[in-house]
Amino acid sequence: MGDQEADTARIKESARALKRVRDTFAERANPADGYGVDDIGSQKTLDAFDAFDSNWKIRRRQLTEELEKLHGITRGAAESYETLDHELAEALRSTDDRQPKGGGK
């Protein structure tokens, strides 16, 4: 079995980045909200934005849910690695404390 190493700082940063992306998705709405035909230029374009908005709400909710899951997984992974590392270190220290001192076998 090879050496295992987890960069928990990087995993935590990934979790934070996923949360930021998730929050951005959750907050973004139709880019044409609040604008009328005079602002956009044509009813056809405004209708396209409205159709986009309906689809975007569904997709945005799905993406937001998936991003939240990924955030939880990465955050949980970092916490698990840290807990495992701490428990392993404690077990090794405990074993070291029980070894005879002075080089005897």
Rank of each mutant, 00 (worst) to 15 (best):
R28H: 07
R28K: 11
A29W: 15
A29V: 11
P31V: 12
P31K: 04
A32L: 06
A32E: 08
D33P: 08
G34R: 09
Y35Q: 14
Y35K: 15
G36A: 09
V37H: 07
V37I: 12
V37Y: 08
D38H: 11
D39Y: 08
I40K: 04
I40L: 09
I40Y: 10
I40T: 09
I40G: 06
I40N: 01
G41D: 09
G41Y: 14
Q43P: 06
Q43F: 04
K44V: 14
L46C: 09
L46F: 04
L46T: 12
L46W: 03
D47T: 11
A48V: 12
A48W: 02
F49V: 11
F49Q: 04
F49Y: 07
D50V: 05
A51G: 07
A51K: 13
D53S: 15
D53V: 09
D53C: 10
S54K: 13
S54N: 08
K57T: 11
K57V: 10
R59W: 03
R60H: 03
R61Y: 05
Q62I: 15
Q62V: 13
Q62M: 11
L63F: 09
T64M: 00
E65T: 03
E65Q: 07
E65H: 01
E66C: 05
E66A: 12
L67H: 01
K69D: 01
K69P: 00
L70A: 07
